[in-house]
Amino acid sequence: MEIKKPLRVMPLLWTLLLAMLIISMANGAVSIPVSRIWAALSEVISSPRAEWSSEATILWRLRIPRALLAAVVGAGLATAGAVLQGLLRNGLADSYVLGVSSGASLGAALAMLMGLRLSFFGLGSVTPAAFVGATLTLFVVVFIARRMTGNSTLGLLLAGIAMSSFLSAIVSLLVFFSRERIQPIVFWTMGGFGARSWNHLIAVAPYIFVGYSVAFLLNRQLTAISLGDETAHHLGVNVPSTRLVLLGASALLTAAAVSVSGVIGFVGLMIPHMARMVSSHNYRRLLPASAVLGATFLVAADLIARVIVKPAELPVGIITALCGGPFFIYLLSKRRREI
């Protein structure tokens, strides 16, 4: 397997992410010139909270946690997509397309409805509930695709789309009957990072870290499976159990993302393809590249969502779907060659 080419790509991708984070910090309903960001941040360190300028408060309490959360969620969704595409050997696989996000949102909505507020401690139970929903959905969709449609690309997609519509209808029903006790419909269909804080970041970052670490530790096996079960078997990979663990990891990544930011589509579909272009098909390179690119993409999408109609905001899922829809169709049109 070739490992030479992409060595110098990662520093570039990290620089891109850092630049995007800084741009994101400088822009929003209130513009803060890049030159003043440093001054505001040193104020955060040096003076008590009551004496902060409004710029320091906006940066530290509102904008930075939000941008970092977008980065973490973007990394998680892109990793989940990369893992699913490799495991299922299907370039159109993604937690949104396969209905895993909808499954996670049903779990999260149920947990919220059971009187668990979306606070720091509440989140503690929302993410596990979302994980249960995501895992069940993923296994049902994969089962339907394998047993009933002979594991065809189209069968997998159709099973995913059907599950996705079905589950999001149930979520809509819950929202309708909840009388504003859970997030509004648009959160569950288009997602967003409005009103997100450090608590949300602290609550989900560990899950994303675990999910990513599991995938990365199994990168060799994942690369082997992406080349075919036979090949993987001959390379000494225990295919069924590896597949199980990796499906679980992608469900965990999706669940963590959905429980703080709702359903944001197409990140996991698009980003791994871009990552393959700049890095490699080898998952040891592909996973970090996907994660950092996904983070950069979602920070940028959130920035656009915040500034395009400022001081109001768009749901970030509108931006990702505007990019992802055409990309999906482009992949479909190339299907014979690539998928």
């Binding site: 929003g28 309903a29 209130v30 409004s54 408060t57 906006i58 509102l62 001081p311 109001a312 905001e313």
Partner: peptide, 18 residues
């Protein structure tokens, strides 16, 4: 000056208004 819209007030703008 507007502190955002009626349906979507901007917390950042409100903070900047002290």
């Amino acid at each position: 000056p507007h502190a955002g819209t009626f349906f979507q007030p901007s917390v950042e703008t409100i903070v900047s208004m002290k």
